[in-house]
Design a protein around this nucleic acid. Structure first.
Length: 1060
RNA sequence: GGGCGUAUAGCUCAGUCGGUUAGAGCGCAUCCCUGAUAAGGAUGAGGCCCCAGGUUCAAGUCCUGGUACGCCCA
């Protein structure tokens, strides 16, 4: 026992009102000054490691509230695992390269396109990109710290650092060595404004719904059976990209589809038979002439425009299997420079690849009609020209989704360009196998969205014709020998000069030339940089600079146990990380991946500047607290589904969860500081668990059940389940345990009951605080600091994770308490419907419920007290003629036994007289009935659900087979007891409004106008006095310093004075 | 057009192994309780558990098809 205890209260006072954001700032200061995060890492150093990889946010643009979502999950599980003794390194990272950065800088500098950048100077441009990235890093750092995301920012990796770039080069060289890094000419989605091809994951982000012209064009046949003469037929082709007609090269048909000639009496066109109606509409009939696609091969036709030159023969019908009869005419216009299928088909016929569109998206200057015009803009001119020349068959608007540049919204071009690819299709089976052993949360992603993507894997278009990115480390000599360089040291050796300090970015690397190791000619670097996704996919080794630096550290942390991002990363980081790992190490770099749904604005739409529905993260946290936002992200709704965030949702979390928890702790501290005080060293004075009051045993059983369930939920990465259980427990603790136990706390810890109460509530709060710590690290740490014993860790985040004390679990008690609480609810309903308020004591209540007989006297006392009734009886004891019975079949049990015959038995139960049934059931322990076709069946009590209801004169409430009825008959004695309770309430109100402390003692003098009231005050005087801490409770005028109070309705007035 | 997901009270969402009065919170209304509380309790608006089939003694729950919405991709 501490000698100073009485003068020095055991706990700091907790105000009833709390400013959560202010509290969080205080906690942040403590974390920072004591280096709590660092301590948590140090403390677990010897422990098993649990590896987490930080998916680097693109340091481009400002952080939004949606960034908080993934960062909460990146924080909760490492904290949880740390408390379980794992060493969880958390190295921050920043994704620095990429087109978004370039576009932002271009905008800042007022540049437009690659030409401008090159005039501005690549060195200067890249410097600006580097600066821009660093600016945004600051904003992310602020967010990270404010939300309590513990990640080591001091040694964050940056994808633009030389050591990082070298690691990426090393990986590319390994891939090149396996023959998987190749150059190919392929049609790529290409942004003419940015002057670069886009990767598939970039492409995915830019689909927009647009209206394009949909045109049907006549191409008159010039050879074959349908050509010649006045009635020559035309091929009818359909396209939504009229600008590609300029370079029309061929028309493709499906070899097995039947094509027919149709006429409206004036002209003849060729279409696929199944599309005749859809393509031509009313008024067109087939002439009977029909050909298979194969028969039409090499028929020539007159091309739609004579604007470009064709050096080789072209403009005839070709065969292609990809042609469908889904829409259009079944005849497909071919322009090989602008379509992958077209390219493949035309190449097979040796047709030329004619491309009149320049890299900036405009037609070549010297063309008639469209020279210098942007490709998309040329549509209108071209369609008008077709119409004038009578070639336009039909023109309508066509709304479809067309890819746009995800950054600048320019319509993309499918364009033939030389490009570097990683042949991921060659390792598809390995990727599928690696995915097979990855745990996805939610599990449906694995074989659904992500698995689907892997099964349809296509080669990774790696190169970008841009500036701010990891340069592709390939040097090429005039004879096209390729040298792949894996480090600056190697580059120095090959170039014959010291290059270890070289900035491995453009333009500096471009200036390095080397003699080709094969032929000795001068090799120059290819101009491209790489897709920034390859950077982020390389982070497992590149963050350490491995293998050139920290190789051992890298090996120790590969693969990761845990990564987490939102669902948009399935084809982004989740893929690049798995792909790079599998390409380089033949092993995916992560084992568990949590994939979150998106955060939406309160109106259910995406947050966007246009809609004005953006919620800024820092102001939100300054209003509701970071803990509220964290709880929302972790536990509100399902993290797998899209969720709406707004002030209302956060306010609810503050009120229902955080403040309820706070108030429970505040209540505890208030009484622990009162009187002689209680501190954890007195826990030993409490009776052993088995001898504590029922309510204590119950709450400890619930506590330990909660520990087990929260632990299991978090092990399964299910924060929502953990949150639901915690919310329920906080509510049980506050609104049942504390509310029912208040008197024991008022009485202090001197009695065994009081000692048990303090020890029990302390234990609940201590364990609960540790359980909630990963999700709400601020509030829990503040309360931990108040509640902890001197020898406990100074922060809850340095404490250990609670373990279930199985000896305290008591499922039977949990179940019986649940029944008791259901009965209390029924009692309240009965009170409310009868209009007799709870303060008025009643003589008895009767209960009809299956488990009632098993309830202990202690538990019955809880019900009686809660309902303010003197006695509680089973309904059966009241007397047969007062009770009505309902008997229903228990289908679950009957179904198990009778299967198909269940309805017949159920019908027999329904037809029987309920009272007789119950009587026989109780007398004999079972009952036999005659069911149709089955004859006599004997039913056990468990196979029937008996509900009892009293008849007249009772206030009854029933639900789910359980009934509670209140006897409303009031004796004069009960009326007086009710009056006494009324007086207690009035005096308590007076105490409170006079600003008295809860432990202040008072004197009360009263006068009563009513005879019954006077008698009640006399009869119950000592009880009232004890309740309101009155030394004097007497009839009379009272002293002059006493304040006057009263209630005219009741006819009571009294004076109240604080006792010296 | 394809893949994946969602659909339950006015709103946001739970709903276990299929079992017969389908729940919670919020909002609103009326009332009750209150010496920890920004808290708690009761009642109310009569829920086409999206629709249609099917399996089953029994379907919000399982199966098939459809509709709407969302995301991802063509």
């Amino acid at each position: 026992m501490s000698p100073t205890r009485h003068t020095d209260p055991p706990f700091r006072a907790l105000p009833a009102q709390v400013d959560l954001p202010a509290l969080e700032r205080e906690v942040l200061r403590r974390w920072s000054s004591s280096g709590v995060f660092e301590q948590s890492l140090k403390q677990t150093e010897g422990g098993p490691s649990w590896v987490f990889y930080e998916g680097p946010p693109t340091a481009n643009g400002q952080p939004g509230v949606h960034h908080v979502e993934a960062r909460v999950f990146k924080d909760v599980f490492p904290r949880f695992k740390t408390m379980k003794g794992y060493h969880v390194e958390r190295k921050a990272g920043w994704d620095c390269h990429g087109l978004p950065v370039e576009v932002a800088v271009e905008k800042e500098l007022g540049l437009s396109g690659k030409k401008d950048i090159e005039e501005f100077g690549i060195a200067e441009f890249n410097d600006r990109c580097r600066e821009s990235v660093l600016r945004n890093v600051d904003a992310f750092t602020e967010l990270t710290e404010r939300m309590g995301y513990w990640v080591d920012l001091s040694q964050a990796y940056r994808t633009m650092d030389a050591s990082y770039v070298e690691s990426v080069w090393w990986a590319l060289k390994a891939i090149h060595g396996k023959g998987l890094l190749v150059r190919d000419f392929r049609i790529s989605p290409y942004c003419p404004r940015c002057g670069t091809t886009l990767s598939d994951h970039e492409l995915a982000q830019g689909y927009e719904t647009v209206t394009d012209p949909s045109v049907y064009v006549r191409l008159p046949l010039t050879s074959g059976p349908l050509s010649g003469g006045a009635d020559a037929a035309s091929l009818l082709v359909w396209t939504t990209t009229p600008w590609t007609l300029v370079s029309n090269t061929a028309v493709a048909v499906h070899p097995e589809v039947e094509y027919v000639v149709a006429t409206d009496g004036a002209e003849r066109v060729v279409v696929a038979e199944p599309l005749l109606g859809a393509a031509l509409g009313e008024g067109w009939t087939a002439t009977g002439e029909r050909f298979t696609g194969a028969q039409m091969e090499r028929w020539t036709y007159r091309r739609p425009f004579e604007l470009v030159e064709f050096a080789e023969p072209a403009h005839f019908v070709v065969l292609a299997d990809y042609v469908t009869v889904e829409d259009g005419t079944g005849l497909v216009h071919q322009s090989p420079a602008f379509g992958e299928d077209d390219m493949r088909t035309c190449r097979a016929y040796g047709l030329p690849v004619v491309n009149p569109v320049r890299a900036d998206g405009t037609f070549e200057q010297d063309l008639d009609l469209v020279g210098g015009v942007f490709f998309k803009t040329a549509d209108a001119t071209l369609v008008a020209d077709l119409r004038e020349r009578g070639l336009l068959f039909r023109h309508q608007d066509y709304e479809h989704s067309y890819p746009h540049c995800w950054r600048c919204h320019t319509a993309l071009l499918y364009y033939a360009l030389p490009s570097w690819y990683i042949r991921t299709t060659r390792i598809k089976d390995r990727l599928l196998a690696e995915n097979e052993r990855t745990n996805w949360y939610p599990a449906t992603i694995k074989n659904g969205r992500y698995g689907e993507w892997l099964r349809n894997n296509i080669d990774w278009a790696l190169s970008r014709s841009r500036y701010w990115g990891t340069p592709l480390p390939l040097w090429e000599c005039p004879d096209s020998h390729i040298t792949c360089v894996g480090s600056l040291a190697e580059l120095g050796e090959l170039a014959g000069r010291e290059l270890s300090a070289l900035d491995p970015h453009r333009p500096y690397v471009d200036d390095v030339t080397l003699p080709c190791p094969e032929c000795g000619l001068t090799a120059r670097r290819v101009p491209e940089v790489i897709d920034a996704w390859f950077d982020s996919g390389s982070m497992p080794f590149a963050q350490w600079g491995a293998p050139y630096r920290n190789q051992e550290r890298f090996e120790r942390s590969y693969p990761a146990q845990y990564i987490c991002e939102a669902i948009d990363q399935t084809r982004g980081w989740f893929y690049s990380l798995m792909a790079v790992g599998t390409l380089v190490f033949d092993r995916s770099s992560y084992e568990n991946v949590v994939c979150l749904g998106h955060i939406l604005a309160e109106d259910g739409r995406k947050m966007s500047k246009h809609l004005g529905n953006i919620l800024e993260p820092i102001p939100v946290m300054e209003r509701h607290g970071a803990d509220a936002l964290r709880w929302f992200m972790a536990a509100s709704g399902s993290p797998w589904a899209p969720r709406r965030v707004g002030h209302a949702a956060l306010e609810e979390i503050v009120r229902k969860v955080l403040l309820t928890y706070w108030n429970t702790a505040s209540f505890f501290v208030l009484y622990a500081r009162a009187g002689e005080g209680w501190d954890p060293s007195r826990a030993a004075e409490a009776p052993p668990y088995a001898q504590r009051p029922l309510l204590d045993r119950w709450v400890l059983a619930e506590l330990n059940r909660t520990v087990g369930e929260v632990d299991a939920a978090l092990e399964d990465f299910d924060t929502a389940r953990a949150g639901r259980r915690l919310t329920e427990f906080v509510d049980d603790l506050s609104n049942w345990y504390v509310r029912r136990s208040r008197r024991r706390f008022w009485g202090g810890a001197a009695t065994p009951e009081g000692a048990a109460a303090f020890a029990t509530l302390y234990e609940c709060l201590e364990v609960l605080t540790r359980l909630m710590a990963p999700i709400v690290p601020f509030l829990t740490d503040y309360l931990w600091d108040v509640l902890r014993t001197p020898d406990a860790p100074e922060s809850v985040h340095l404490a250990s994770w609670p373990q279930v004390r199985t000896e305290l679990l008591d499922p039977q008690l949990s179940e019986r308490m649940a029944l008791a609480r259901r009965l209390v609810e029924l009692g309240r309903t009965a009170r409310a419907t009868s209009g007799v308020r709870t303060r008025q004591p009643l003589g008895r209540a009767v209960v009809g419920a299956a488990g009632f007989d098993a309830l202990s006297p202690e538990l019955r006392e809880v019900i009686a007290d809660e309902l303010n009734v003197a006695e509680l009886h089973p309904l059966g004891a009241v007397g047969g003629e007062l009770v009505d019975y309902t008997v229903k079949p228990n289908f679950r049990e009957l179904g198990r036994r009778f299967g198909k015959q269940t309805p017949k038995v159920a019908a027999a139960v329904g037809a029987a007289d309920p009272a007789g049934l119950v009587h026989r059931l109780r007398a004999d322990g079972s009952v036999s009935l005659t069911a149709a076709e089955l004859g006599e069946v004997r039913l056990e009590p468990g196979e029937l659900v008996v509900t009892e209801q009293p008849r007249e004169g009772w206030a009854v409430a029933a639900g789910a087979g359980e009934t509670l009825a209140l006897d409303l008959e009031l004796s004069p004695e009960l009326v007086r007891a009710g009056l006494a309770r009324e007086v207690v309430r009035l005096v308590q109100d007076a105490r409170k409004s006079s600003g008295l402390d809860i432990s202040d003692r008072v004197d009360v003098w009263w006068s009563a106008a009513d005879k019954e009231l006077r008698r009640a005050l006399t009869d119950f005087g000592p009880d009232i006095a004890a309740e309101v801490l009155a030394g004097t409770f007497a009839e009379g005028p009272g002293g002059s310093d006493a304040t006057e109070h009263g209630d005219p309705d009741l006819g009571l007035s009294f004076r109240l004075a604080r006792r010296g």
